[in-house]
Design a binder for these strands. Structure first.
Lengths: 125, 125
DNA sequence: TGCACCACTTTCCTCTAGGTACCTACTAGC
DNA sequence: GCTAGTAGGTACCTAGAGGAAAGTGGTGCA
């Protein structure tokens, strides 16, 4: 319970939000996870592995992650051109986070169950 | 490096994506974090604490989290009506995850630095 | 001659999440 | 009679993210 007298900082209600925006914005999770789990990838390799991502969005997200220092881009001026993406040291520091997330997947069944129960209650009512 | 012969499951490229979608979709993080950190809240208390969220979206997200079994809603048929939201046992199991996220906030400086470096390189080029 | 390859870029278009604003029922208080 | 407070619901609208498809440039290969 919150007392109304508590001064609440307006835009800093949740201290972890900035981290979440960097790491868990759309498409960044599978990219980071893939690079962390399977190492260096070329552009088309990432594209094929993630499957449904379009090259435009993949480029956008890789630039963003490179700018944030989570991914390292290496350009080889060959013909045809070759570019390799790998996770940075900073990106590697996310490993414990991914580990905790992976652990939590055991609870997905409980989420499924909760959804079924909720829908059944609403359907009955 | 990935060999092209490796069979890649098309939509299951990243095993943690389902978890991320449940927990880190837009607005759900501050809601879960607040309820986990500060306990039970009424609707307006959440609204005021999070600050910029609109009642419509807050309702949507609370319903979704209730359906997923992460939040428990208690309705008191008084006048005026009173509704309380608190985190469920399942939601409480996210605590280690939030702890790791909070730890990682120390790296936000490095992200800032990386962005500054990146922008400086691009500006020079 | 023309297609394929790679790593994008550009243009156009769609779709939907989220914002704005207003509405509900009920009562207490002025 | 009018307002405020509570917990939302509903209709409408817009901005922006993201998808689809085609282009680019230099070379190797048929």
């Amino acid at each position: 319970m919150v007392t109304t007298t508590t001064p609440i900082p307006p835009d800093q209600a949740c201290s972890v939000t900035p981290v979440v925006e960097i790491i868990f914005s759309r498409w960044t999770t599978p990219i980071l996870w893939t690079l962390n789990e399977y190492g260096r990838h070329r552009f088309v390799e990432l594209e094929r592995r993630i499957g449904t991502i379009t090259p435009k969005v993949l480029t956008q997200r890789l630039r963003q992650l490179e700018r944030d220092g989570l991914v390292v881009r290496t350009y080889h001026p060959e013909v045809p051109p070759r570019v390799e993406y790998e996770i940075s040291d900073l990106g590697r520091s996310l490993a414990p986070l991914f580990a905790v997330l992976a652990d939590w997947t055991v609870n997905l069944d409980r989420v499924e169950q909760a959804r079924a129960d909720f829908d059944a209650r609403k359907g009955a009512a």
